[in-house]
Design a protein around this nucleic acid. Structure first.
Lengths: 367, 367
DNA sequence: GTGAAAGCGCTAACAG
DNA sequence: CTGTTAGCGCTTTCAC
């Protein structure tokens, strides 16, 4: 209001053109195709723009016209503020950001506000495609994404729906490998700590009903892989206690391990479906006076740096690659003829938290 | 082309309206103002939409019309893929994401591709405002942001330019406090390890010329604060060796410390302008057989979790709060009358890496 | 409760 | 090299 030059003039491309007595095309070209007009004319246009406070073509109007937003949307499991704490998610984000940067595309993080269950944010997102990272299969945001007529790639989901592109690892096979490592060492009495299995909070032993209806493919596959591995040596899955935690944190792993061990003190191995949970279990075991791995074997999943530092036996997966692959799949022009699926390799990393149980000889001598 | 229903029909609001024999307004209302039409009619519209494969109002067209994109843009110093590795940046991101979620706004990460020096990405961004996080003052992307006629809040920058909102800490005062702690302990022979000071890579001792023209406000202020603190006890700034590192990593801190100590073995304290660098210096000192803090005092800045675990003496700053404050400043409606500036408090955290130097008595007895 | 009119600001053919 | 012509798909007063 005071004489500030910051009074935003609503100058538009059209008004600029009028002012200069040239056509809108010319002004547009001055910005988008410098080779389509003479240098002096271009300079005249740009100079006038500066003088009139014209900030250049409006990005939204341009997007409407060109039919491209120049950004990809990312839908995450949780409140995205949480994602920045999770090393697996940040690794994925880093890879995805890498791919976006290389393509000069923006990365739009879709807000999944816990308060307003705002599917609207998905509708509002001006993007050329979506990446969906490990969400519940019945997540309404996910469903909303599927409605949008833009290419979408899902991560760690079954290839399932309507020809989406997909990237992920074989969680089932990876966990099976880990299970074989453990049964090979002689373990027979397992306990499990896993991440959330459904929409609503539930902490503690997972009921059979809950296990039968796991909404998160990653958890479902990891548990199934473990089950298959144990079945190979005749361990009855129904006898394996499975402790669920809604929150994914070291503390959650810690308390879960405490409860699990209290209820089942005879366990020789605790398999966790994530490193974070395993680190918590590890902490609890140590605090409890147990020697790992001699008294108790503990394993994780993901291969995050912190786990490596701790010498955790785990399955490493290429999270950064996963993000990058997702981005490339989405941004790559061309053969979008049929859905593509990228499965990345995992690696069993045997650390210092697994060894034969004290009673191993019992099993082997029993043969 | 085959009978798949996935052939994206270019159905539009208009075509839907035509099909139903109602006006576009009605269709629009069905989506945006359910209370403006009868429930049965609305259901008819939605049903037809489903049938025709109309995905709902196009977000870009809507944005053009409503003049709001529903997202804020974030401009980061570096390749954004790097940001996800830096605990300070992720803390900031978490806070910002929190604010965005609460407001139901998307967060668009602007790609700062090192390859294409793509200021265009800034122009292309369909956002209602920008947050600029600790960039070089002459960064072309930053300049491009300033051109855009949308509210912008800068972080850790001088309030400077044309009435932008600002959030940050008082780096100068914080570092002054740290300096006083060290000089109070008796230190007089300081070495410094700092982050990049200019656009182009330079590793090693920073020349006077380079120090006189630091492009990053954060580094400038931290060094100035230190200088002021040392001046108070008569330490000549010109005699203080300052080692610069372009890359911000533990390894960088490590090699910087190695060089610094080799060239100046008599130092009793190394002040680092970030925790990450300090952790590297710490690692180097230990590897070198030095006992910290007895042989050498080492300090950091930021107060990241890893530093706390290491017991580093440092200045803690509320990075999450900073992100949240930036978001709130941007999203908050109302009194955008005059630029606002939020300065958050810092806290000197004395850990186990600082103590009096062996020759302290020399100085005190000299009084 | 519903429709008609009027653009939002821009780009992409295609002529000249 | 420059201008003319047509919308992109939607929302929003304002009458009916």
């Amino acid at each position: 209001m005071s004489g500030s030059s910051k009074v935003r003039r609503p100058a538009t491309l059209a008004s600029l053109a009028a002012e200069l007595g040239v056509s809108r095309t010319t002004v547009s070209n001055a910005y988008n195709r410098p080779d389509q007009l003479s240098a002096p004319l271009r300079e005249r246009v740009l100079e006038a723009a500066r003088r009139l406070g014209y900030p250049g073509p409006d990005p939204v109007a341009r997007s409407l016209r060109t039919r491209r937003a120049g950004a990809v949307g990312l839908l995450l499991t949780e409140a995205l503020s949480y994602a920045f704490r999770d090393p697996v998610a940040t690794g994925f984000l880093e890879g995805l950001a890498l791919a976006c940067e290389r393509a000069g595309q923006g990365l739009l993080l879709i807000p999944v506000s816990p308060e307003h269950a705002d599917v609207a944010a998905v509708h509002r997102a001006g993007v050329d495609g979506f990446v969906v990272y490990s969400v519940r299969e019945d997540d309404p945001h996910f469903l909303a994404v599927l409605e949008r007529p833009v290419p979408t790639v899902v991560c760690d989901q079954p290839a399932g729906v309507e020809g989406l592109d997909r990237v992920g690892v074989d969680d089932h096979a990876a966990m099976l490998g880990l299970a074989r490592h453990l049964t090979g060492l002689g373990h027979r009495r397992f306990g499990v700590i896993c991440m959330r299995l459904g929409e609503y909070r539930s902490d503690g032993p997972a009921s059979a009903a809950r296990l039968a209806d796991i909404a998160y493919p990653v958890q479902r596959n990891r548990l199934a892989g473990l089950r298959a591995g144990l079945a190979e040596v005749g361990v009855d899955w129904a006898t394996v206690p499975i402790w669920e935690r809604f929150d994914h944190s070291v503390e959650a792993g810690q308390t879960a391990a405490a409860e699990l061990l209290a209820a089942h003190p005879q366990l020789t191995a605790i398999v966790c479906t994530s490193d974070i949970l395993a680190l918590g279990a590890l902490r609890r075991a140590v605090a409890h006076g147990l020697t790992v791995p001699d008294d108790l074997t503990i394993t994780g999943f993901d291969g995050v740096p912190e786990a490596e530092r701790a010498g955790l036996t785990t399955v490493w997966q290429p999270v950064l690659e996963k993000g990058r692959a997702a981005g490339e799949l989405l941004l790559e022009r061309g053969d979008r003829i049929r859905p593509r699926s990228v499965t990345l390799p995992t690696e069993l990393r045997i650390g210092r938290t697994s060894c034969a149980p004290r009673d191993a000889e019992r099993w082997f001598s029993g043969l």
